[in-house]
Nucleic acid binder design. Structure first.
Length: 561
RNA sequence: UGCCGGAUGGCGCAAUUGGCAGCGCACCUGACUCUGGAUCAGGGGGUUCCAGGUUCGAAUCCUGGUCCGGCAGCCA
């Protein structure tokens, strides 16, 4: 139970940790988030580090940030910087415990020599192709490398010369001597070191041999005294290998627990494929608001609270499933509803002239900033004779259940007056260009003293005061729930949604000019927006985070069927 | 065909470890409302993968099967 008496969410990982503590396998909890700096973090990583940091915090332990930077050909400081920004933005703190697997290269090297000395590792001269062939298959055992029986002295000598740079890339590897017949292919003498004459973003040219992930990861955890090494399902089959290494070395033994990675409909969660979208120009960078990256979601207007809430709602299991994107959208709406500054913005303007309203007069009307938060106060909205309303808020021939404006009908303009549509003005082609309406001065503020009701309240903006704002309306990046499902010979790009971005210049009440970029907004009756980083006072730009729920949209959809 | 793992309403998860299968999202109905939003009240939807077994009683234990995912990088 927490302070409110509500049960604290638990899951199988937390239960394991609890058991370990109770049974004394570990005396304190230490976890880590171990990204490779080869791309930007996405919401799947947010799930992972919410578990890592969350569990550490709940059990009074610590969570380290460690960069698994063992492959210099794919990594870059740009990525380490973005990763730190994203984790911090999400509200997690690793204090000074910022570690790098590359810091452990010397220790790893020493341990490798120890395994050689113990006869548990050897230098192999087979090519990559030959290793692949001799590894066997899923159903047949592998064949021993002809170099498997080299003497300790020869192995040591060769390994030192590998390190000294005497051999070209790929010429030799250091391999663990385990079991070529193991049913677990990871145990068939896995490669520990490869020769790579590449400059590392941190260690420069100090090394020309680099540890494989499988050799580096478990020992890195061990060095940091990680009690619970929480990772995704695909590493489950590697666990016996990690255990083997720490046992041979006789060092601290972390417990690895695997959970299912996050999948969400209508998007992708693979760093490789996301990079492809960026590099081939399908999106405008890693922080494109259509991307499921944390930087993209941030720019889109998602808040850390919304993402954390989503992560806790989806839970942690070993079931490899797919979360409907509606869950994520519900989490942002829920959060933004409580915090977003309300504004009126007309996306597709329809001119309204109030024929009985004096010309050249401007009134200032009071509007509530956030009905969910009285502390947010009110603001003034200018009102005049000529207004814009939303095109879709008028129908010359209203269908059943359509409550909005129509000829002869009366509706309320939010925070303003009741108006009645008296005349529809059309151009030569029959397009509606203007509505001529009358207003009822007695309804100022939005209430009728005689108690009469209207069925609809419309948002509006004064034509004389409207500020043009570029709005970017985003739709799903893919047209299908599972973009990875493609016919033979095709790839996920075939499912890209050509309409994932629609730019519309909206007419917005002038209050928007006082707001800072990044602030959460709601354009009433439309959706949640936030001011983009491209926004300037002269040219405001707003991204649509997510539309508002709309029961009218559902009714319309059903009527079409 | 080998090994590892998984299976509970459409989706995500629970079920005090053998005791009336619940919750969130989605969906539907109604109330309320100056956002067709929010809120509130209610509703539909389950062969708990299948078949046997143990038991007064099985989502849970046992046996056998089915289906799905992962693993054959000098990637992580």
């Amino acid at each position: 139970m927490d302070d409110s008496g509500a049960p604290v969410a638990t899951d199988f990982v937390r239960e394991f940790v609890k058991d370990d503590l109770r049974e004394g396998r570990y005396t304190r909890v230490c976890t880590r988030f171990p990204p490779e700096p080869n791309g930007y973090l996405h919401i799947g990583h947010a799930k992972a580090f919410s578990i890592d940091f969350g569990i550490a915090e709940e059990f009074g332990g610590l969570c380290n940030l460690r960069f698994d930077d063992t492959n210099p050909t794919k990594e870059d400081v740009e990525y380490v910087d973005s990763i730190k920004d994203d984790v911090r933005w999400m509200g997690f703190d690793w204090d000074d415990r910022e570690y790098y697997a590359s810091d452990y290269f010397p220790q790893l090297y020493t341990w490798a020599e120890q395994l050689i000395t113990d006869g548990k590792a050897y230098v192999c001269d087979l090519t990559a192709d030959e290793v692949a062939k001799s590894r066997g298959t899923l159903t047949e055992p592998g064949k021993a490398s002809p170099y498997r029986t080299r003497t300790v002295a020869e192995n040591l000598d060769l390994f030192r010369r590998m390190k000294a740079g005497e051999f070209p890339d790929g010429a030799r590897t250091l391999r663990a001597k385990i079991d070529m017949a193991s049913p677990n292919i990871n145990m068939r003498d896995p490669v520990m070191y490869r020769i790579l004459h590449a400059t590392h973003h941190r260690t420069g040219d100090a090394w020309c041999i680099y540890p494989m992930y499988d050799w580096a990861h478990g020992q890195s955890d061990s060095i940091e005294q990680i009690s619970h090494s929480i990772c995704t399902l695909e590493f489950e089959i590697h666990r016996p290998l990690y255990n083997w290494f720490v046992e041979q070395l006789g060092i601290f033994h972390p417990r690895q627990i695997e959970f299912a990675r996050l999948n969400i409909t209508y998007t992708l969660m693979s760093k490789r494929k996301l990079r492809r979208l960026v590099e081939d120009g399908y999106v405008n960078g890693w922080d494109d608001p259509r991307m499921p990256t944390l930087s993209g979601l941030r720019r889109r207007g998602y808040t850390p609270e919304a993402i954390r809430s989503f992560c806790s709602r989806i839970g942690v299991t070993k079931i490899d499933g797919v979360v409907e994107i509606g869950m994520l959208e519900d989490a942002v709406r829920d959060d933004l509803n409580k915090r977003a500054q309300r504004l009126m913005a007309v996306l597709r303007p329809l001119k309204v002239v109030l024929t009985n309203y004096p010309e050249g007069v401007t009134e200032e009307l009071d509007a509530v900033n956030n009905p969910e938060d009285a502390a947010a106060g009110t603001r003034k909205v200018p009102f005049g004779r000529e207004l814009h309303i939303e095109q879709e808020d008028f129908r010359e021939e209203p269908p059943p259940k359509y409550f909005r404006l129509a000829p002869g009908r009366e509706v309320r303009l939010r925070y303003a007056y009741f108006i009645r549509c008296e005349e529809v003005v059309k151009d030569a082609d029959g397009n509606i260009t203007e509505l001529r309406c009358t207003y009822d001065p007695a309804t100022r503020g939005g209430d009728a003293p005689d108690g009469r009701k209207v069925k609809a309240t419309l948002h509006w903006v004064s034509a004389a005061h409207a500020v043009p704002v570029e709005t970017r309306q985003y739709d799903y990046l893919f047209r299908v729930p599972n973009p990875e499902d493609t016919p033979e010979g095709q790839d996920f790009t075939m499912h890209l949604n050509p309409d994932s971005l629609t730019v519309i210049t909206a007419q917005v009440e002038p209050f928007i000019e006082t707001l800072a970029p990044g602030m959460s907004l709601q354009f009433e009756r439309q959706g949640y927006f936030c001011l983009d980083k491209d926004s300037t006072p002269a040219h405001p730009v707003a991204n649509r985070t997510v539309s508002l729920r709309s029961s009218w949209a559902n009714i319309e959809k059903k009527m079409q069927k």
